[in-house]
Design a protein around this nucleic acid. Structure first.
Lengths: 224, 224
DNA sequence: TAGATTGTTAATCGATTAACAATC
DNA sequence: TAGATTGTTAATCGATTAACAATC
């Protein structure tokens, strides 16, 4: 069934499916059932079938899903069948760590430029990209058709950087700074601030008080 | 209203409240209403009142919430009125970046030990902590009463590390590796894998304006 | 008193899960 | 055919929002 609007929760699960499917493909597994996926990913099989059915009839009754075909489909849904250029703003420790994380590459996301506001950082190399000054942000974004920005600057600079990204026509932002960014409705922001995750973990340390939930993983995110 | 069971969504919002309240306190604002909080945090005021009311009657009708008092209460709810010791496993780029992020300190979370499986890393200093070999993990956790573990090792080592943490009696895990960890129900895991966030962002890029980029990267490129 | 704002109940909305006919 | 498994509808569960009496 198509044409319903897709909820955020569904979209959030697609990369998780993709990740596991890629593993299957590497191991040359040809098909997989919603049951197996559910087991491995801690999700209800009905939910997985429903998620996928939003986008098309990808499975075969009695058989399951063809791994290669499903990967192709999910990649397409996520716009990953073309390279998506990414800019990183903030060449501090975290920024450097992320730029090395070439995880992205596997899924056609690629950091193609790095910026920093701090003079002495400019011109240095981060993972073989030359750090550029903020003045060049807008033109670089346009020249290289950069669609996604990663913000790893300190809290007090984050909103300002976001504004510049928006102005330059960015499509989406991954924000590591611990604030709620204001952006127009057409620019999606995902919060990647791990201090929030970290702190909420402390709640579950049992100090006598009990919480007998499953040890489910949860992806943690505030967006708007 | 007490004694309902608290949903994960509620707990996830508490650190966000705390963060904003701390900012107010810094600016010496004495009280705040659910309305203002909602506006600043992109949340419904009724939701905020309801969240807080799960834990007690912290506000005053007609007035709002006393900032200092509410901070104290939320800190207490989150177990942050005592120092919580944290161990970091994986002294790679990301691990180093996190160890510098002393954001935690503000909220009584403190990384007190760092481990790595890779021989040459052992003994080096990370943010003035000496990297220890994995063999010492269990005793260190017990000696220092470490409650939370941060996993920043490669994907294929993550489950094994998690097992060791569980065995050593850890209370909760923040997992940066891109897999679903298996842990007993009493050990909570939060997924902090940002590649998932990143990839799901791509879904929201509107492809109305696709100028099929030739993606010529100006900067010196990484090759692979 | 008048205005503001909480705590809480009821209404709404949305997401997950169960169940099963269709069919490979 | 018999067994497996999808796609989908209906049932359930849970979370968000509206509304308002209580009260500062």
């Amino acid at each position: 069934m198509k044409s319903d609007k897709i909820s955020e929760a569904v979209v959030r699960r697609l990369p998780i499916y993709l990740r596991y499917l890629s593993g299957l493909q590497r191991r040359e597994v040809a098909t997989v059932s919603s049951q197996e996926l559910g087991q491995k990913l801690d999700l209800n099989p009905a939910q997985i079938r429903k998620d996928l059915a939003y986008f098309g009839d990808f499975g075969r009754k009695g058989i399951g899903y063809d791994v290669a075909y499903l990967i192709e489909k999910i990649r397409h849904i996520l716009n990953l069948d073309q390279q998506i250029n990414v800019v990183l703003i903030g060449a501090g420790n975290l920024g450097q760590a992320l730029s090395n994380y070439n995880m992205y590459l596997k899924e056609n996301l690629k950091i193609v430029a790095v910026f920093d506001a701090y003079g002495p950082k400019v011109g240095t190399l981060i993972n073989s990209l030359k750090v550029q000054p903020m003045e060049e942000l807008s033109t670089t974004i346009q020249q290289h058709n950069i669609r996604i920005g990663i913000i790893t600057v300190p809290e007090h600079e984050a909103q300002q950087v976001a504004d510049k990204l928006v102005e330059a026509g960015i499509g989406a932002i991954l924000n590591f700074a611990p604030i709620i960014l204001r952006t127009p409705a057409n620019v999606r922001v995902h919060a990647a601030d791990f201090t929030t995750d970290m702190i909420s973990l402390a709640y579950y340390l049992d100090n006598g008080k009990e919480d007998l939930d499953d040890a489910k993983q949860s992806n943690t995110e505030v967006d708007h």
